[in-house]
């Protein structure tokens, strides 16, 4: 579904991505694991068309999207959750949900969003940033479901959340998957990653260094944690 082919990116002089290639198949949940500064966030920004100096190719459904502007990529079905969750302070919770256009046939109606996430219904009139961190993450993911995106690109959705909320995010990701949405997830928490994902790419210094399945991740958890510096 998503094919990344030899993508490079730089910030000024610094080469942040050194030729990343990876594939995500329809219905999969795949994580990108790696240290801070390994280039994971930059890769996601490249996928959305938010990074200017990028080379290489990105294909979505066999179609090259590497030169499309961000709003067109979104309309093809890429649903983005940035590392800071991307919730607007000047928009209410409901406006945060309905800002993006409906981009796919499986878009959730607002009622279904509110049924699944009752807390968003209770607080629909409040400013988006009045929600707690966990609720904002929920809102950001619900927004992607409301759009009817076909792939969720989430930049470390569990960062800074209490264990109970991390579990809740895990449930949401499983819900997303059950609805046929493909997921590409940045995750530092390898244990959590192995409970929600099918496959993992280990990223280091702007490259994919290894591709791992869940069994390998569980087996090598300590080694990986040490590697990640956690």
């Amino acid at each position: 579904m998503l094919n990344v082919d030899n993508v490079t990116a730089r910030y000024g002089e610094a080469q942040v991505l050194q030729g990343v290639s990876l594939d995500v198949d329809t219905g999969e949940v795949v994580t990108l694991v790696g240290r801070n500064g390994a280039g994971k966030t930059t890769l996601l920004r490249c996928l959305m068309g938010l990074h200017r100096s990028m080379t290489g190719d990105i294909r979505f459904d066999e179609r090259s999207i590497a030169t499309l502007s961000p709003h067109k990529r979104c309309r093809l079905g890429l649903g983005y959750v940035p590392d800071d969750r991307g919730i607007y302070a000047s928009l209410s919770v409901e406006e945060n949900l309905t800002l993006p256009p409906v981009v796919g046939p499986d878009a959730w109606p607002l009622e279904k969003v509110y049924e699944t996430f009752p807390v968003l219904a209770e607080r629909r009139r409040q400013a988006g940033t009045h929600l707690s961190g966990g609720e904002q993450q929920m809102l950001a993911m619900a927004r992607v479901l409301r759009m009817g995106a076909r792939i969720l690109l989430a930049d470390e959705p569990t960062e800074g959340l209490a264990p109970l909320l991390v579990q809740r995010i895990g449930e949401i990701i499983r819900t997303v998957k059950e609805h046929g949405v493909t997921v590409l997830l940045i995750e530092q928490n390898v244990h959590f990653a192995s409970t929600v994902a099918d496959r993992h790419y280990l990223i280091a210094q702007g490259r994919v260094v290894e591709s791992l399945d869940n069994a390998e991740v569980r087996q090598r958890e300590h080694e990986l944690l040490e590697y990640l510096g956690i």
Binding site: L50, R75, Y88, S90, L99, P100
Partner: peptide, 19 residues
């Protein structure tokens, strides 16, 4: 709503499908 969103964060708004 689009003007408010773009004013607050133009790039994010762009990546949420708004031109």
């Amino acid at each position: 709503m689009i003007v408010r969103a773009s004013t607050e964060r133009a790039e994010l708004t762009q990546s949420l499908g708004v031109d």
